[in-house]
Write a protein that binds this DNA or RNA. Structure first.
Length: 583
RNA sequence: CGGGGCGUGGCUCAGCCUGGUAGAGCGUUCGGUUUGGGACCGAAAGGUCGGAGGUUCGAAUCCUCUCGCCCCGACCA
């Protein structure tokens, strides 16, 4: 391509609306323009990156036997009702009506459509496994689009689905995808961490997220510095030093604590307790299938609740903190004086049932202090197993930096911000059961198809590559997804010798199979250098004065190093560099 | 949805508090001088000040409503 005729609207200054680096550079380098909140147009340069990423996705999906489809983005209501997601998706789904008044929606993912194809056509285990995928637009009416193309309402996604006759088959398909994802992100030049993730409200037995560590991300992950353990904070656990409790009292003793409202208050209160000797009591209302119940979550005073863990432990119920009036009606006291001791009886007096869930870090603890369910009063000498009717002991706590790794002896966990670029899910039979997709197995018995679902956000790959690879001058594209392999910069278009040399080299490089951008604009050299750095092409061949000596300069964007190369060797040299390590 | 901020030539912003003929820099066009890290001189084009209503002799500026965008939070199979 000739820059003089190519559309690359670079910006000299940072756009006012951009906050994160990838957003600023995508705008400044002329890759994208915003159409509305969370809706972006990909300009030619970005589309080239998009196509390169898609090519890698196709190659790696095909390598594991994937078959590419292209499904409708416009879906009828009925199919989403079959899976129950017409309701579940709530406001996140774009909905519309056709001229007859029939309900339609724009697809958020395509489990339903793929499953409906499978159930109509696949009858026998002999037709399995199948791995189906597509690269297509997804729509989500995000409550708050943000961070440029990182959190948007319309985006390109590679989504794949596996269909197997049993769990063992799913395990294999899942593992295939996992390996494919590693290859994809490696090829795209992204450093990533694979974390255990919450399967969320949609169920499923296992899921892994592929995360890029960056402050632009919205997730938090914990990673071990020695064994490689990694988990989304929604899921991560840790190893804590044991705490030795005294024998304690024969029974809890109530004592007045006027004005004490928080864990912190009680640590300072005379006769109070250190935060790790307190029991934090949180009240939630859990709703599942239209049924609500009160849930009391108990944690060590210095620990933070992980709400997703709470929700997951309640089979994906929707969970919200109880309102102050609800709490008072339930236990007769305000937040700040609540506790698990006698809570069930107290609630029952008021005609209400509660479920008590306690964090594992509280197991076996004695001589603890907690609220007395009476304003301005606490209890000391509480031994949890003796005094509190815990229904279930589960992991509810949020891991923090510096805690011990749950998988190895001497590792320490570190918590990072991260961006999700891929997610692989073992769905199991959720969709096949609800939508009636089954096959006859080897024994002639009808069984639901066992499914997996695997997604990658294309723009997120593009943006995270920028987040990871840039400097003060602009983008530094990883070779495999750079819009061009190299750029030929003619420093002065008025000098025929330079122009001719540049044109010749441009032709030769293209003939050698490289994607070449020729900067043939009537601009000063400085402007061209700045722009080339900004748009981040991996290699620049500068056509300058040395042409009369038969030399051009080869500039590497990443290292900013320059070497003189004989013109006749230039193509070979660039080819060797640009294509090295791309497979 | 709650909180905060912002809408003024293509871009970045000033002007608004205290009403009185719409400004700067960059970019664009034309002419000239330059020509290896965002050149210089001269000339020019380009704006219903997000929109509607109101107050006023007079509104970018004050008031009301409304739309849009950004940030924080809630939310986010």
């Amino acid at each position: 391509m000739r820059w003089s005729q190519y559309f690359i609207p670079t910006l000299r200054e940072d756009p006012a609306d951009a906050e994160v680096i990838s957003h600023k550079l995508l705008l400044r380098a002329g890759l994208v323009r915003q159409l509305a909140a969370g809706i972006y147009s990909l300009l030619p340069l970005a589309h080239r990156v998009n196509l390169k990423i898609q090519q890698i996705l196709r190659e790696e999906m095909n390598r594991i036997g994937g078959q590419e489809f292209y499904l409708p983005a416009l879906n009828p209501r009925e199919i989403w009702e079959e899976s129950g997601r017409w309701t579940v998706m709530g406001d996140n789904m774009f909905r519309l009506k056709d001229r007859k008044g029939a309900d339609l929606c724009l697809g958020m993912t395509h489990e339903e459509i793929f499953t409906s194809i499978a159930r109509n056509e696949i009858r026998s285990y002999k037709q399995l496994p199948q791995v189906w995928y597509q690269i297509q637009m997804k729509f989500r009416d995000e409550a708050r689009p943000k961070s440029g193309v990182l959190r948007v309402r319309q985006f390109i996604m590679k989504d794949a689905y596996s269909f197997d006759v049993n769990e063992a088959g799913l395990d294999k398909s899942f593992e295939d995808q996992r390996e494919a994802y590693k290859r994809i992100f490696n090829r795209c030049g992204l450093k990533y961490t694979i974390v255990e993730a919450s399967s969320g409200a949609m169920g499923g037995s296992a899921s892994n997220e592929f995360m890029v560590k960056t402050d632009a991300g919205e997730d938090l992950i914990a990673t071990c510095d020695s064994c490689g353990y990694a988990g989304n904070l929604e899921k991560a656990t840790s190893r804590l030093p044991e705490i030795k409790d005294g024998i304690g009292l024969d029974e809890p003793v109530e004592f007045p604590t006027p004005g004490v409202r928080t864990i912190e208050d009680l640590t300072k209160f005379p006769g109070g307790a250190e935060s790790d000797r307190q029991i934090k009591t949180l009240i939630f209302v859990s709703t599942k299938d239209g049924e609500s119940e009160f849930v009391l979550a108990l944690l060590r005073g210095d620990h933070q609740l992980q709400e997703t863990k709470l929700s997951d432990s309640l089979a994906g119920a929707e969970v919200r903190p109880a309102q102050p009036e609800e709490i008072r009606n339930l236990l007769g006291a305000d937040a700040g004086s609540l506790g698990g001791v006698g809570a069930k009886a107290k609630a029952r007096e008021r005609g209400k049932e509660i479920r008590i869930l306690a964090d594992l870090a509280l197991k076996g603890r004695r001589n603890m202090t907690t609220g007395a369910n009476k304003d301005d009063h606490h209890l000391r000498g509480v031994s949890i197993s003796r005094d509190i009717a815990v229904d279930r002991w589960i992991d509810l706590r949020t891991v923090t930096s510096g805690e011990g790794c749950p998988q190895c002896e001497d590792g320490t966990l570190e918590v990072f911000k991260a961006l999700e670029i891929g997610h692989i899910f073992k769905l199991g039979t959720k969709y096949s059961v609800s939508m009636g997709a089954s096959v006859l197995n080897q024994e002639g018995k009808e069984v639901p198809i066992v499914m997996g679902s695997y997604g990658i956000g294309v723009e997120r790959i593009m943006a995270s590559a920028i987040e990871l690879h840039h400097d003060a001058d602009g983008i530094i594209w990883p070779k495999a997804i750079a819009p061009f392999d190299c750029i030929v910069t003619i420093t002065n278009m008025k000098q025929d010798e330079l122009r001719d040399a540049g044109e010749r080299l441009y032709d030769d490089l293209q003939r050698a199979g490289l994607d070449v951008l020729l900067d043939d604009r009537e601009e000063r050299a400085g402007v061209k250098f700045k722009d080339a750095d900004l748009i981040g092409i991996p290699y620049r061949i500068t056509i300058g004065k040395k042409v009369s000596d038969g030399l051009v300069e080869l500039f590497e964007r990443r290292t900013k190093t320059t070497e003189d190369v004989r013109i006749k060797d230039a193509v070979e040299r660039v080819q060797a560099l640009a294509l090295a390590g791309l497979l």
